[in-house]
Amino acid sequence: MSHGSALPAQRLDWLPLALIPAIALAALPFIPSLPTWVTLTVAGLAMGMMIFMMAAGLTLVFGLMDIMNFAHGVFISVGAYAGTSVLLAMKPSMQADSLAANLSAIVPAVLAAMALAGFLGWFFERVVIRPVYGDHLKQILVTMGGLIVVEQLIHVVWGPDIIPLPRPATITGSFIVGDAAIERYRVLAVLVGLAVFAAMWLILNRTRLGLLIRAGVENREMVESLGYRIRSLFVGVFIAGSALAGLGGVMWALYQESVNAQIGMQMMVVLFIVLIIGGLGSVGGCFVGALLVGLMANYTGYLAPKLALGSNILLMVLVLLWRPRGLFPVGRA
């Protein structure tokens, strides 16, 4: 058989990746000092990593099942509250100047946040989302309704007041690198974010489950025709995505050092911007989009605070003018 000339080699699409250093370098001349730029850059990367954790599940859920879940923020809120409850209950361990003691509070807090958010995700998928598959308008209405109900339940369980959440002793304070002060917590957030991204990358690219998820995002009907029950896969992804949002929630609560019932809802606009910038359904795009948004928010927050949110919308507009389906568009059938 004749097959024509050889195919072009598959190359890494590095241009969107180059946007991250490009934005960082573009901000440099406007920041009065290098140490301030370093501090802002690390803060932006840390914020981006936390946004990525919160958004990763949402982009997979949309990509895999075409679900518009406006209630994703409640998984963030519930995770934040569950983690806060555990951390406050273990105050002595939190205040001890020992990493082991701090970890003995943080690890159960993170597990509780992920477990409760994951359980809520399972419940939400069965009760709220399953009846409205295939109908975007109903999905928006019913998930917004679910969000309001859960927010009110949070008021009932945890009360209406903002709950202060001091950080554990060993991750409070800053590292001094040269003249730059880099908050320890932000370094931790970057490391956790990188670990989550690496784990997701490995699962998606090195396992059969990941192969199924990637195929399902492209063409779920064909995955079913190959003999796989995509609904079961979707429920698993929904639970995992909710648990990740719970992890992001507790990380965000520790970042803000307080928690309130709107903590998740307040993030939703940013999460949707990240999803659209990255390309709906693309985990890699979500990662790059989150870092871009985190950096942009920190630079503009410092240079022109009133433009902080507007700057991310401007970023989204510019990205869409360049790539109308996002930085890393996912082929959909």
Binding site: R214, A215, E218, N219, E221, M222, S225, V330, G331, A333
Partner: peptide
């Protein structure tokens, strides 16, 4: 089943 649009997974 091989559908009319072939249904291949382009990203794989």
């Amino acid at each position: 089943y091989v559908p009319e649009n072939m249904g291949i997974f382009a990203g794989l």
